[in-house]
Amino acid sequence: MGEDTTNEMSFLDHLEILRWHLVRAFASVFVFAILAFVFKGFVFDTVILGPSGKDFFTNRLLCDLASRLDMPLLCINQIPLSVQNINMSGQFTTHIWVSFVAGIVVAFPYIFWEFWRFVKPALYSKEVNHSRGAIFFASTLFTVGILFAYYVICPLSIHFLGTYQVSEEVENIVNLGSYISTITSIVLAGGIIFELPIFIYFLAKVGLVSSGFLRKYRKHSIVVALLLAAVITPPDVISQLLVCFPLVILYESGIVIARRIEAKREKEMAE
């Protein structure tokens, strides 16, 4: 362990400390969830349903770009999406679920900080110094991932899934629960995917992945990114690149991180 005091602590003592870290983390989620529940007008009308409207920032930007480039396929979400609720308690349960997800998203930096406070005493001072920026970078990447998913992937996915038809005789009337689960899944997935450099950092630190391993599967990662972009975007190159390019950048940054860790480890071994 990193400190002498932690060596003297029993397993139950560690569990007690962990319990209070978890209590504070859940309390922060609960507080932000209550705020989201109270301000449901902003959460639903502006945030949740926003990407489906023609006045949404991304939709307006793409339509303007479509007129300049004479590419009408880029102009998305101009027809209002019909969303309905078919369950008696559907809107209430959806309200609670969305508030909980919003609480997790907003409280994520604090949750990660509580996790760091629990792990920190087990680290040596040198390891603590190397990991001081972990909270900042993890929170920043998570936020960037959420914003990217919300402003880029969500509008493209809503347009593709909301207008896709197997037959002109079948009308798309989207269930509220389905719409909400799609938006929340995309947003949370975006935040987690953008944590890829952090995951690679820790995996490289313990020797589970290497820069050589990541380079070996570089082509596979590009193919996966292209397939993902092709599935959720309209059939045009610009939209696909908007989704694919950041994913490739994240993977390449992971290779750089792993290479730096290996170089540092080799230098320490040489010394």
Score class of each variant (00 low, 15 high):
V106P: 04
I158A: 12
N172G: 03
N77W: 09
F136V: 10
I153W: 01
L74Q: 03
G90L: 01
P121R: 14
I86N: 15
Y150A: 01
M71S: 10
L123W: 05
F118T: 02
V128L: 09
R60M: 13
P109D: 08
G145P: 01
F42D: 15
E114Y: 08
G53T: 15
V106C: 05
V47S: 04
V128I: 15
V38I: 15
Y164I: 14
S131Q: 11
L62A: 12
N129L: 12
Q165P: 03
S167F: 00
G133Q: 10
A122N: 06
A122Q: 11
D64A: 10
V98M: 10
N87R: 07
G162L: 11
S67I: 14
H95V: 07
F118H: 06
F39Q: 09
P155K: 01
V128M: 10
F39V: 11
I96S: 00
K40Q: 13
V119F: 00
R68T: 08
S125T: 11
A138F: 02
S139E: 08
F56G: 01
S89P: 00
F115D: 04
G162F: 11
K54M: 02
K40V: 10
A149H: 13
Y110D: 06
F160Y: 13
L73S: 15
I158G: 11
V47H: 06
F115S: 14
L123F: 09
F92I: 13
L141V: 12
E171L: 04
V38L: 14
W113E: 08
S82F: 09
I79W: 00
S67E: 15
E114Q: 13
C75V: 12
Q165D: 00
N85I: 10
W97N: 09
A107M: 06
M88D: 01
V98G: 03
T58G: 02
L73E: 14
W97R: 04
V170F: 13
N59K: 01
Q78I: 05
K40W: 09
Y110H: 04
V166D: 11
T93K: 13
I104M: 12
V43F: 04
L62K: 08
F160V: 15
N129K: 15
S139C: 05
W116G: 05
E168Q: 12
F137L: 00
D70Y: 09
S67G: 06
G90I: 05
S89C: 04
V101Q: 09
S157E: 01
N172F: 07
K120L: 09
Y164V: 04
N59F: 10
Y110N: 08
N87P: 06
I104D: 00
S82G: 00
R132V: 14
